[in-house]
Write a protein that binds this DNA or RNA. Sequence first.
DNA 1: GAATTTAGATGATACTGATCATATAAAGAG
DNA 2: CTCTTTATATGATCAGTATCATCTAAATTC
Lengths: 191, 191
Amino acid sequence: MRVSREQMAENRERILDTAATLFRERGFDGVGVADVMKAVGLTHGGFYGHFSSKDDLAARAIGRAFIQSNQRAAEAKAAGPQAPLQAIADRYLSPAHRDDAGHGCPVAALGCDIARQGGAARLAATEGVRAAIKGLSAIAPGETAEDRRTSAIASYATLVGALVLSRMVDDEALSDEILAAAKTELQSAQE
Amino acid sequence: MRVSREQMAENRERILDTAATLFRERGFDGVGVADVMKAVGLTHGGFYGHFSSKDDLAARAIGRAFIQSNQRAAEAKAAGPQAPLQAIADRYLSPAHRDDAGHGCPVAALGCDIARQGGAARLAATEGVRAAIKGLSAIAPGETAEDRRTSAIASYATLVGALVLSRMVDDEALSDEILAAAKTELQSAQE
DNA sequence: GAATTTAGATGATACTGATCATATAAAGAG
DNA sequence: CTCTTTATATGATCAGTATCATCTAAATTC
């Protein structure tokens, strides 16, 4: 059955958002086109009216996930009394973020998947990483702009690595310890 | 056709090694049982004489990858004139390691895949991470053992995150910059 | 409000992949 | 040297999965 023009646009948005979440939860190969469409409440056949292929969807979903993620980081900067980098680390390294990969950082959720992906998906991710580094550079410590950029990249890496490790391990105490250790180290690097 | 007892044991080893490499290169879902067996030079049917399932293989392959990886780190510690942590970082954050995921760190290559994996695979990875942290703790800076462990975990996270980021991006200059930035920051954290 | 367009539904196709039943030929036991 | 065992090979099954052709009913358009 046909739906209105704006309903269609909304459906497309929901497909993208749903895909961005499902991919982060289960990985690219863990989610089928039909899974995404079913989660949205549509049937699989209509998919190719919106996207040219699953890869196309993946690339756009990655782009969307990065935009949301970088936006959340920008929000965290502003809010709260702490230093901006500490505010970001507190959110990023929280158990809540660890336990909800579907709505979290796409690098931690899909980093190694993206590294194996081709063309468009890699490009979208590269833009996202660039934007994230730029955002962090504005609040990283350091005398020169170069120093701040170096520090921003290293902090980004620490955040990502700690979250990946904390999600991998099968022991909650160790997982919490990893998050806490990264937070502590980022704090002392700040001075 | 049947092969000798030791030939069979050797075949099993080769299946494990091959799987450990292929999984790191292409991810769990990117490699089929038949792919592994073909790479070893056997046919797919014989697989279930060696392992009870693909998940079983995955768990054992992860264990093997961690042992090899931690061993390489231990070797790097001893060799060379630099501080041990710097020696490890130099190897870990080298373009050679970035460009050869199949023989490198299983966390950077499969971290997010493992996080989605169940049971045995997670357990094997947890042991591997624990061992890696222990190894790094012995050479990390800090007054108390606790400080050293915290520092070791954070350094581990920085290494992993930087490698993942460097593999994700589609721009070699940026990729190199990420590796260099993490190396620099680990060096200055050392003092 | 009739004619036209089209978003999404239905169903088919062509692959791929995990798992297993059975066959076979070579190893190891006697 | 024969008999038994068994590591692999062959081939089948069953379940998914991406993609596409076709249909249909509702939204636009005139």
